[in-house]
Each structure stands twice: as C-alpha cells, then as structure tokens.
Nucleic acid binder design. Structure first.
Lengths: 155, 155
DNA sequence: CCGCCGAGGTTGACGTGTCAACCAACGTCT
DNA sequence: AGACGTTGGTTGACACGTCAACCTCGGCGG
C-alpha cells in the first residue's frame, strides 16, 4: 500500500475541467434538445442512427453495438420510444431470437425536425469555441482513450 | 430557416469522440469506484468536497454552488447519503431556512479509503494516456467552454 | 437426435437526476 | 408593523441506466 500518485496541478486542471464541462455541457444540450424537439439525447442517438441505415431498421444487437450501449439499456429505451410511437419492434427474419427496431414515419419526422437545431446547439456550446488545433487534439485524445477502454473492456 | 451549418469532418471526429469517450469513461470510472469502495461518483464528489472544508461541513447552498448541482439534486442525494450514514443534516445557525451538511466519521473513513483507488483509476483510464500538451489543451478547452456555459446560464 | 452452452433479448429492482410545485424563513420598503 | 418578493430547501412524478436474473432460440458435439 504505497502512497498513491496524486494528480499534479496540470493534471488536476484537466481532470476537473473535464468533469465540470461534462456536467454543464450535457445538461445544456439536453435542455436545448428537449425544449425544441421533445427528444432526449438518447432518443436522438437512436433515431439518427436508424435514419442513416438502409430500410431504416437495425437489429437490436447491432444498434447496441454501434451506440456502445448495453442490451439492457437499449431494450429499456426502445420500450419507452415505442410507447411514444417513434420506433417499432419487428421480428427478425431467419432468427427466432431476433428483434429488429424500425423507424416509424413519426420517428423520421422527429429526427428531421430536430437535427438542425441540435447541430446548432452543439456548435454554440462547444464546437464554435474551439480552434482547429483544439478540435484535432480533442479528436486524438478521445480516440486514444476510447481505444483503451474498449480494448480492456474487463479491467 | 436557412440550411444549418452541419459539422465538417474534423468537427465530427471531435464531437463523436467526445460523446463516445464520455459514455465509456464515466461508466468505467463509476464501476471501478463502486467495486472497490461502494461509493458512486456523486458520493465521492460530495465527500471529497466536505473533507476539504474546515469543520467538515457546508451549507447546502454552498455545496450545491461548488459542485454546480441544482438544489433539488443535492437535496435528493443528501437524503440518500444520510440514510447510509455518510453525512448528517444539521440546522444552520442564524438562519432558520438553513441546512448544513456535515461529514460523519463513517463518511470520512469512506473517502479516505476510496481516494487512492479512484485517483489510480482516473490515471489508468484517462490521465496517463495524455501528453503534457494534451493536458494543457484539455484544460484550456474545458475552462473556456465552462466559462461560456456559466455565463449564459439561460440561453 | 439429444444435451448443453452461448448469443440475443427482456424484465425488475434500484440509484440517479430533471422539472415543477410547494413551503418557510428572510429582508426590504413603506 | 405589514405586505411581498426572494432565497434556501424539500418533495413527487417521472425519465434514464445499472446490475443481475431469467428466458428462448441457435448451433454443436457426442
């Protein structure tokens, strides 16, 4: 039980900054999105993913994989979205276990209506405050960290 | 209703990277923390803040301000932590509306025991993957974005 | 063909956090 | 002193997400 390697000042500024930004930014984006479209961020993620696939439908497992969500989380969320008429569950052809999620017309309308405002919100609160170099650095950082996290999904 | 300024490729990489990292990183940190201390991240934030104050106590409003939490959120969370014996509510001297949160001995033990492991976890999953320049850039980005968000708390 | 394991999915209980409504004490203005 | 808006705090309903348990179907090996 040796003395832990506490964070030095530079590390602390980065870490605390991240935590603070994360809290405030996500809250603000969620509020903007909810206010002008009635969707939550998870709703938006599901709908935008489906809207980009051919046939506007995906198997649960594939959707979960793309979003990096657990099966459980996806199942719960799809249940809620289904009740609001945004998506529909269908049987999977050729696999009795299967379940496919399909975009409904209402779901498509919702994402089409929400997208411009959401992008605008992301710009206003984050992207437009960063320089090109900062964007590159942010992309590099996140890519590396994500790679590490998905590699050691266990540890 | 002009055409929205969609994100270009660079912006997209940064934005998607951020979203992905946020999801995976927070989940992993929360899991590590829960596994070796039984605390959640919000628990940790409350306890570590209190442990750094003189008297190990703070008014609700001040604690909420420091953590950037809503009054509601703090009240709910303190209720849960109080039931687990980590903190205690006290009356505020000189202000009948007041409420003060105080660390209990059990709460102090918990944060002291949890801190080394948590720092280690933060290093392993994030900090140790970044160069010094990247740490500086991350701190700069987050500071600027947080400043903007707290300034226009309304818009 | 049967037994069994793994893959795909659902469910329930619970902790967390949001918003909105509400309440009580404070301070100020007259 | 009395009226009244503000500040500090709580509560309830509900959305979200985790874990763990469970179920069913698919694919294999013997």
């Amino acid at each position: 039980m040796t003395e832990p390697r506490w964070l030095d000042q530079r590390e602390n500024r980065a870490w605390r900054g991240y935590r603070r930004m994360r809290g405030l930014l996500d809250l603000q984006l969620a509020r903007d999105l909810a206010a002008d479209s009635g969707l939550s961020e998870p709703d938006y993620d599901v709908l935008s993913t489906l809207s980009e696939t051919e046939g506007h439908r995906l198997r649960m497992i594939d959707l979960a994989g793309w979003l990096l969500w657990s099966k459980s989380r996806l199942s719960h969320h799809i249940t809620r979205m289904e009740q609001r008429g945004l998506v529909r569950r269908e049987e999977s052809p050729g696999d009795g276990r299967g379940a496919v999620v399909a975009l409904t017309p209402a779901g498509l309308d919702a994402i089409v209506a929400a997208a411009p405002g959401h992008v605008e919100s992301v710009r206003r609160h984050l992207i437009d405050h960063l320089t090109e170099d900062e964007l590159e650095t942010l992309a590099a950082i996140t890519t590396r960290v994500v790679a590490h996290l998905t590699a050691h999904a266990d540890t």
